[in-house]
Design a protein around this nucleic acid. Structure first.
Lengths: 201, 201
DNA sequence: CTGCCCCTGTGACAAATGTCATCCGAAATC
DNA sequence: GATTTCGGATGACATTTGTCACAGGGGCAG
């Protein structure tokens, strides 16, 4: 039996995935968590073979959990399961040691297949997505630019962004300006959309 | 057997929900669709007792499908299953004749229960959500304001919005200004966020 | 040691955005 | 019939954003 830990924040989806996997004879869901920051502790107890990770979760992103997993449970293989096929997500997942990357758009029967392959030591990645990630290249933004742009998503005015980061307004305007330019956008709004869509935030 | 039609755009989630329901002895998934605009045609063939509808779907929103369902399949009961517990969504769902409103955050065992109750002619709504929807009141925006604000989410400049709606830039600025004021926002950005969060767009 | 890049900041300027007063015509309400 | 409400528009104005040039300091690679 392949022991699986399920990390997904939406209870309904989590339960449904568990049902789906339970129908497979060789797979057993040994634990479930709804938050990213509960994965490690639960995994240490449940000792899963494969960890199925959503990316968008409260507490900690699935992408960040990967790093800790590799350190604390080097024998567990991890599989990212996400809504968004953003090139930057895939890139970071692979850099952080994921065994595979699956989209929620994929047919549900692919899930069990991916889990078996991950458990067998293979890597599971959609070829089209991989090509996208490679052709896009890495993010052109510097750390600070990324940080400012990321805050710009949820913060309405430049003054507020400056406050949060202890920067002058002028500096924030400069970072936004270069970010807008690098992304080929016309706006801070368009810039955040582009960066978000590519998984650079 | 309760005959269920599943309308959900993410294939993995759709398949998982089907697995979940299949484990129930008295429920049968008779059809599945991934797009809002395929619901009616499929429902006419499959004649389901209950239609499980996601809101965010390509083609047509689940909220809009409700109206057509009531007209073309008056005997089918419909159940909204969505990620977002926005008061405006719930309000519109109920006004359009939904039998129930479920969140994907709810425990997965609630789903079968809700389906059975809907099938029995009951209405299924989270009491907390209902209270929110009632206390929020309806949207304060006029049709035009809502339309302009909605476009402002995906369009970066006022000039573009004006183009799409065949309005002058000044008019668009006026609508945005009143919308910003009505929502207590400082910005077009903040205004779109507030309106979106309440389900008014 | 010398570039080079990043972080931070200032000042000036242009363009976009938000606000306000005011206007018109049509439809609905009183 | 009078009043209100809405869609649509204009013009003037203040504020916010975006752009650009420039400058100092720190770190790192050659």
């Amino acid at each position: 039996m392949i022991r699986v830990l399920l990390a997904e924040d939406q209870a309904m989806v989590r339960g449904a995935l568990a049902a789906l996997l339970t129908l497979e004879g060789d797979i057993e869901v040994v634990a479930e968590v709804s938050r990213g920051d509960e994965v490690i502790a639960t995994a240490l107890k449940a000792q899963p073979d494969v960890v199925l990770l959503d990316i968008e979760m409260p507490g900690q992103s699935g992408l960040d959990v990967l790093t800790d997993l590799r350190a604390k449970l080097p024998n567990a293989r991890s599989l990212i399961l996400t809504t968004f096929g953003r090139p930057g997500y895939l890139r970071r997942a692979m850099e952080n040691g994921a065994a595979g990357f699956l989209l929620k758009d994929a047919p549900s029967r692919d899930l069990a297949v991916a889990i078996r392959r991950a458990n067998a030591g293979e890597r599971v990645v959609d070829p089209g997505l991989a090509a996208d990630a490679l052709s896009e290249g890495p993010s052109p933004l510097t750390d600070r630019e990324q940080e400012v742009l990321s805050l710009a998503r949820t913060t309405s005015t430049i003054a507020e962004i400056a406050d949060r980061l202890y920067l002058s307004e002028g500096t924030v305007r400069n970072y936004l300006s270069t970010a807008i330019h690098k992304l080929g956008a016309q706006n801070r709004l368009e810039a955040t959309r582009i960066a978000e869509q590519k998984g650079w935030l």
